[in-house]
Design a binder for these strands. Structure first.
Lengths: 140, 140
DNA sequence: CTGCTTGCAAAGGCTTTGCAGAACA
DNA sequence: TGTTCTGCAAAGCCTTTGCAAGCAG
């Protein structure tokens, strides 16, 4: 997906959801507006907090359902770096991450800054589903 | 650490723990014997189950404390690929992983099969703490 | 209408913690 | 003996689920 997905009007969000065969309910549209507004890394709790700040009346269960749905259709990407919570990344183009284990901060690695040669042979009977590179850093 | 760390006698385990400034209590020695017996990926629950199979009377709390301690001193490595549980890898030499999202199986990627060029510039004020490469695969 | 969604609260699963008793040095 | 460790149960967190009421098409 390109950066054109960012800064979307409500109508564009509705269209985007429809293209992904997601029925554009009010909650889903509001969550999409928050999450897809710019490249960012948000936990479910942060999405909920942002929604409430905006005045949306969305429940925690719906945030989880919706983020799971968005991840399944490729609107966001789950980033698993911290055993205590999942991050959702609104940038679904191929890129990798720095994770500061002291602050819990997740940052993008500039595209092209990590070269990954050809993939190794996959285990028999499997197909690739994604490659994650996480560089853990510590505040010094 | 080399493969020489595997197949250790009780005395060797005690010595290994002492070298890492870990007081070799009975439970820690038993857990180390299980975990460090060979290259493997175990969850805390699996360590506990193996300990009980062996007849050790170790509690869940002690398994968590001990695995956390071992990870902190570098006797094992935490592998975070699944938001529902942490894996402990007894192979602490540099290598990466395949993770089968369908089966939950974690496998080593043969050493050298993934080429990672030079690391990108780290965020200001941080130092590298580790690099994880996870290739997610699906059963086909 | 008819099924999909939502929200609430409760349940679930993994991990941590508090504290008394036990083991280590 | 003083400190560190262990075990149990309870608590904590994030996430999922059950089910009745509410919306979408």
């Amino acid at each position: 997906m390109s950066a054109a997905e960012f800064h979307l009007s409500k109508a564009e969000i509705v269209e985007l959801l429809r293209r992904h065969r997601i029925s554009p309910t009010q909650q889903r549209v509001e969550i999409a507006q928050i999450v897809l507004s710019k490249p960012q890394h948000l936990s479910a709790d942060e999405v909920l907090a942002l929604a409430h700040e905006r005045g949306s009346r969305v429940s925690k269960a719906t945030v989880y359902n919706t983020m799971g749905l968005f991840a399944r259709v490729g609107l966001v990407r789950e980033v698993i770096v911290d055993p205590t919570k999942v991050f959702y990344d609104s940038n679904v183009s191929e890129h990798h991450h720095f994770y500061n284990v002291d602050t819990g901060e997740l940052m993008d690695i500039p595209a092209g800054a990590v070269e990954l040669g050809t993939l190794p042979d996959l285990p028999k009977g499997t197909q690739a589903a994604g490659v994650d590179v996480i560089i853990r850093v510590r505040s010094q």
